[in-house]
């Protein structure tokens, strides 16, 4: 259940309408996918499920996802012209809908491509602009994007997690949440680490030196609205 704490959970966010779940949340899924991919993709296949699939045209959910992929914020009036902006930026977009029943009615899967790289991210929009990423590159995850998270792609082998946490301990960084997921024993795996406070650059460099560690992505917290007054 959602717990409302702040006045600004009620009065806010400032956002482009019409729907906090179908528009604002969708922008954030696009933004998060872009930062996980690490750059703006030049081709994206978007699949919309459930309510997203049925109502995306009236809510501009497709525009919102594309706007996020282009790096626009939830309060950018340019969301309306997302297709034209994508054209200009050289990002090809294809929208598909699927009748497949998903656990959450507001589900979008973004399949991003650039040169030889491809990656998929699946996100759900849970209301009020809040989101949860539930799949990254085939791994089951849970990322709310409300706090910073480090994603470490690595080969599944004994001792690797200990080496990562050892580096964090040396840097006196406290882990608030950790999730490990793998495709199969000894295959690629994904480690997600959320921490109290920022992870120092030195720790990130330390992770890179560990044998069998692949890509490392630092995903900063996605604000639900900008703090500019």
């Amino acid at each position: 259940m959602t717990i409302f704490r702040s006045l600004f959970d009620i009065i806010g966010p400032v956002m482009v309408g019409p729907s906090s779940s179908h528009t604002a949340g969708a922008v954030r899924i696009g933004l998060a996918s872009r930062s996980i991919f690490g750059e703006q993709p030049d081709k994206v296949d978007i699949t919309l499920y459930g309510s997203f699939g049925h109502t995306y045209k009236g809510h501009g959910t497709d525009l919102a996802l594309i706007a996020g992929l282009l790096g626009l914020s939830t309060e950018s009036v340019e969301i309306r012209s997302a297709y034209q902006l994508a054209d200009k930026a050289g990002m090809k977009v294809r929208i598909n809908t699927s009748g497949e029943i998903t656990e959450h009615p507001n589900t979008a899967r973004l399949f991003m491509h650039k040169d030889n790289r491809s990656m998929s991210v699946t996100g759900i929009s849970t209301g009020g602009g809040m989101i949860d990423l539930i799949e990254i590159d085939g791994f089951d995850v849970h990322v709310s994007c409300d706090e910073p998270v480090v994603l470490i792609f690595h080969r599944d082998r004994p001792g690797l997690i200990a080496r990562v946490t050892h580096i964090l301990a040396d840097e006196k960084v406290n882990v608030s949440q950790m999730e490990v997921s793998r495709k199969a024993r000894g295959e690629t795996a994904l480690m997600l680490i959320a921490t109290d406070g920022e992870i120092p650059e030195r720790a990130l460099r330390g992770f890179e030196l560990i044998e069998d560690v692949g890509t490392i992505v630092f995903l900063s917290a996605l604000k639900r609205e900008s703090d500019t007054v």
Binding site: G12, V14, M15, V16, G17, P18, S20, T23, G60, R80
Partner: peptide, 21 residues
Amino acid sequence: EVNASMGIICATPTAGSSGVV
């Protein structure tokens, strides 16, 4: 109506009820 036109609003408490307060 601004909300439905994809204009900028402040959700109060939600986008769909943002006109009342």
